[in-house]
């Protein structure tokens, strides 16, 4: 029972991790909360479903979701962020909010407001290990998350583009002086963030086999909480906070506390903001308010 819940929690946690990383890439590097990420996630699910319903193979659906969301992320960057780059930090957040409303309306008009369902399981089959039963789909969710995080880590840590990202995250002005192109870094952050959100959308969509144009808000808000709990100034905090919150949620539901889970998660988020802005894992407090 406990192990089973752990597996279910990790599946949910994997998706939280991806979206939280998506938020955190933009927030940690540019200091902007891109609220449209919740809708990139929703769109990723629709792109993926469209591909699957067109009988395209699963990997194609995954790639379609990631690229589709990344493209929309570029549009957001060009229209909602770039013109407001030097405005107070809250302003681009509000414009991404406006964008997210537009995206939701677009999705409602294109795909309708009724839930879209998959008739067949994309990946049937379960794997049974002792008392624990894992569906192939769950394995895919977790496997894909690990792979994506690994790729992201490689890009950010090992490539020149990633170094530029980190330089900007560290100190925007200094990075500019060193000849890092802020425009390209910004674009890269949005693209990576779109890829993560799109992947998360299609994965959770296939896992539940049903999606709606409104699915972004709840999970998106939760992912913001995950990002904060992991620490807003460090991108990788989400790797710990995601699974942690996923497991905690599944556990509270399993042990009769389904209704209190949001209360606890958001309460924890506020506590972290007030007391440990560097996140649960963060070391020194020196980064506090760095980009406020």
């Amino acid at each position: 029972m406990l192990l089973q819940q752990l597996v279910n929690g990790l599946t949910l946690g994997a998706v939280y991790t991806l979206i939280a990383l998506s938020f955190s890439l933009v927030m940690g590097i540019l200091g902007v909360l891109n609220l449209a990420i919740a809708e990139l996630f929703m769109l990723g699910a629709y792109f993926g479903f469209t591909a699957i319903l067109a009988q395209l193979p699963l990997p194609v659906a995954l790639v379609a979701a990631m690229l589709g969301s990344a493209l929309v992320a570029i549009v957001i960057q060009k229209i909602a962020y770039e013109p407001l780059r030097d405005a107070p930090i809250v302003t681009p957040m509000l414009s991404t909010l406006g964008f997210s409303i537009i995206l939701q309306n677009v999705a409602t008009n294109v795909w309708g407001s009724d839930p879209l369902q998959l008739t067949d399981e994309v990946l049937p089959g379960r794997l049974t290990l002792g008392s624990v039963s894992i569906s192939t789909m769950q394995l895919l969710v977790m496997g894909a998350t690990v792979a994506l995080v690994a790729i992201l880590a490689f890009v950010v840590q090992k490539t020149p583009a990633g170094r530029a990202l980190r330089a900007v995250a560290e100190n925007r002005d200094v990075a500019r002086l060193l000849g890092v192109s802020a425009a390209r870094v910004t674009l890269l952050a949005f693209v990576l963030s779109g890829v993560m959100a799109g992947a998360a959308g299609v994965l959770i969509g296939m896992h539940y086999a049903v999606i709606t144009p409104y699915m972004g808000v709840d999970i998106g808000l939760k992912a913001i909480a995950v990002m904060v709990i992991g620490g807003t100034t460090r991108i990788w905090g989400a790797l710990v906070a995601g699974p942690l919150i996923g497991i905690a949620e599944v556990m509270t539901v399993a042990y009769g506390g389904s209704q209190v889970r949001d209360f606890v998660v958001y309460g924890l988020m506020i506590l972290i903001l007030l007391l440990r802005p560097q996140g649960i894992l963060g070391g020194s407090r020196s980064e506090q308010g760095q980009r406020v």
């Binding site: 927030m27 909360l33 809250v90 957040m93 913001i224 904060v228 807003t232 903001l273 007030l274």
Partner: peptide
């Protein structure tokens, strides 16, 4: 809290 962090809280 200020700005975006206040908004999140």
């Amino acid at each position: 809290l200020k700005g975006i962090y206040l908004a999140i809280a």
